[in-house]
Nucleic acid binder design. Structure first.
Length: 407
DNA sequence: AAACCGGGGCC
DNA sequence: GGCCCAGGTTT
């Protein structure tokens, strides 16, 4: 055990957190059962220390943990918003290779930024990254700001991401609260209610702040204490205190003090609101080939996925024949279309089906609206396309860049 | 407070 | 198919 843990009242620790409340939370249970604020803060310090030391031994070796460059940490945090670690790893490495500095991002062509983000989804994240990079150049002389409020004011950076950058890259005692931390804290303290809305959300932020401040005060924990305690909460949530009814409490460093585990009710927390129901959507998609090129359309500024190229497509009803809308929109007679396999694609709450039709025909261009392009097989690979249309593109273009013959 | 973002992985 | 993920922004 580390030298710092010895003096703390470890015999009180498991009991203390069962009824703990903290001065900053303004709760009353504490005084009712006669626990002192000093005991509460001491148990908090023990918890912070156990988590930090556990992280030192059990942290995964993730690529962005090998740097303290705020820019690199920032990119990783934004990529990790709603996106899992294993998905992010190759994207982060590629991004840092191509755009290693803030200035590189600010000055890059927007289509290059989108191409680097292709497949990660939630593409406003990429657009906001570049907007923020430009702001850092203009307002902060090209240096990533250190003030948490200045970080928070950048586009695409909310309270979580600002706290993550400030603590992980700059070792400041700023709290973080994400899905992992919500799960860890609601279980540890058996906190009921919706953790995403007040009042529980506010209490969780206060608890997260109390933990990082406890680590900050514990000088014996050594360097980068704020970075380590905050990452320990997320790491524990990702690898031990996992969703569902079977977290790995046997290897949890704070299991003895966990109230949900004491009750055997780990699966009850957090109390997340019901999911939005899943709905199906249907699209008629046309692949129009002409002299080895394929017709693409650029999503316009008013549309979702603006800046991405895609095969011309229109949303239809579940049973509308796709030839009808394709012929009307593209001026190609209905009998010129041949059927291709449907393409299924999932995105958040949508189950999307693209009904694909192929035509080898050059229509008189009545597609006046928007930006169109006859793309070669090589261009298909280099343009930014959303995931569903990238799948479609891979049907046409093999791994050697050869155009594939379709009947 | 709720909807949206038209991504991906896991079971 | 359901659920979750190192969320932020818009309405």
């Amino acid at each position: 055990m580390g030298p710092g843990l010895g003096g703390l009242s470890s015999q009180n620790w498991p009991q203390a957190d069962r009824h703990v409340s903290f001065r900053s939370m303004g709760l009353q249970r504490c005084s009712k059962i006669g626990k002192s604020v000093q005991d509460a803060e001491r148990s908090l310090a023990v918890t912070a220390e156990l988590l930090t030391l556990w992280f030192d031994k059990n942290a995964r070796d993730l690529p962005w943990r090998r740097t303290q460059d705020p820019y690199a940490v920032w990119i990783s945090e934004v990529m990790l918003q709603q996106t899992q670690v294993q998905t992010v790893i190759p994207y982060w490495g590629r991004w840092m290779d191509h755009l290693p500095r803030i200035r590189d991002l600010a000055e890059a062509p927007p289509e290059r930024v989108l191409k680097l983000w292709e497949g990660l989804g939630y593409y406003s994240r990429a657009r906001n990254l570049q907007r923020a990079a430009c702001q850092i150049l203009e307002k902060h002389n090209g240096v990533f700001p250190q003030d948490p409020d200045a970080i928070l004011s950048l586009p695409g950076i909310g309270r979580y991401t600002a706290g993550a950058i400030a603590s992980i890259a700059l070792d400041q005692p700023e709290p973080i609260l994400d899905g992992n931390v919500i799960r860890v804290l609601t279980r540890f303290f058996a906190l009921e209610g919706d953790p995403k809305v007040r009042p529980l959300n506010q209490r969780l932020w206060e608890l997260a702040a109390a933990l990082v401040e406890a680590a900050y005060s514990a000088e014996h924990l050594g360097d980068r204490r704020c970075a380590r305690i905050n990452q320990s909460l997320m790491e524990l949530g990702a690898t031990v205190c996992t969703p569902g009814g079977q977290p790995a409490c046997g290897v949890c460093p704070v299991a003895e003090a966990c109230e949900a585990r004491r009750r055997g009710q780990q699966e009850r927390f957090p109390e997340l609101p019901p999911r939005v129901p899943i709905t199906g959507r249907f699209f008629a998609t046309g692949i129009i080939a002409h002299q080895g090129r394929y017709l693409l359309r650029l999503r316009e500024d008013t549309e979702v996925n603006r800046g991405f190229w895609e095969f011309p497509n229109w949303e239809t009803g579940p049973s509308d024949p796709p030839e009808a809308v394709l012929s009307e929109q593209l001026g190609i007679p209905p009998n010129r279309w041949s059927s291709q396999p449907d393409l299924r694609h999932h995105i958040t709450r949508y189950r999307m089906t693209q009904r694909v039709r192929y035509a080898s025909f050059l229509p008189s261009p009545n597609w006046a609206k928007g930006t169109w392009l006859w793309a070669t097989a090589t261009e298909l690979e280099s343009l930014a396309m959303t995931a569903a249309h990238r799948k479609l593109s891979l049907r046409l273009v093999g791994t050697f860049g050869e155009s594939r013959q379709l009947s």
